[in-house]
Design a binder for these strands. Sequence first.
DNA 1: AATTTTCTTTAGAACTATTCTAAACTATTG
DNA 2: CAATAGTTTAGAATAGTTCTAAAGAAAATT
Lengths: 139, 139
Amino acid sequence: MRKKFRESAETASRLRKAGLRPTRQRLELAGLLFRQGDRHLTAESLHGEAEASGIRVSLATVYNTLHQFTDAGLLRQVVVDAARSYFDTNTREHQHFYCEDENRLIDIPGDSIAVAGVPAPPKGTRIERVDVVIRVRRG
Amino acid sequence: MRKKFRESAETASRLRKAGLRPTRQRLELAGLLFRQGDRHLTAESLHGEAEASGIRVSLATVYNTLHQFTDAGLLRQVVVDAARSYFDTNTREHQHFYCEDENRLIDIPGDSIAVAGVPAPPKGTRIERVDVVIRVRRG
DNA sequence: AATTTTCTTTAGAACTATTCTAAACTATTG
DNA sequence: CAATAGTTTAGAATAGTTCTAAAGAAAATT
């Protein structure tokens, strides 16, 4: 399969650039993560998907991989819920609706939303990121 | 002590209005929470403070109380860190800097900051709250 | 003011998400 | 192809939080 081969090679080189060896587990997880469009996953949900696809990988490796990919800029971690951590395959600038009834994230494109009037950050610090979470409920 | 008595009576009636019995534990925790100005606490930190003040209260009760006060609108829960939950005694509209180096929250007054271009919420939902977290780091 | 009812507190167990550990394994280097 | 350095893994450990059921306290009822 030509396409798959090219994707793997591309992913492998992305990983190498991030200082990560392109192991079977990383390549297969990357396949799951990036094959489809923008996605929001938890470690458990990705692990479940891997299992369902016949990919053999431990939960610990899923956690490691999600964090390594996040550090490498391939994923963005989204904190909306005290209970679980979400990872977003969309690393462009954007924000989120968070549906509290169904624990679901929905992207808001970065060009539609803007935060104005941000004060200077506390002395000795610099702004890392501005996160907007719009909490919504059925009703 | 006149002042303390009045505070207790006021707190007691706030609790009653929220359908909560003004028990010793709730009154004493309310004392710690609201005596000082705006504060950001975790369950553990409040429990520690209580211990230090000679207030006898279990950690389970601290958790219960924080949630009950939040439901009653006396506190606001702030989600910034996947690890721990913060509770904010400032329930006015406002936002936060989150200092990732020291796990510390800093209030941003609601009148200085504004979010523009919020799209319509997903079908069948209404906006509950708009949370802005500005993540900062030393540097 | 004693009794009953309802709510609250508590210690400790249980749970959930996540991280750690150290041994086995795999990719890369020389 | 051996040596090295990085990776994976199962399971243990941890952290924060919630649950449980029994004891205690507040409110309602007599």
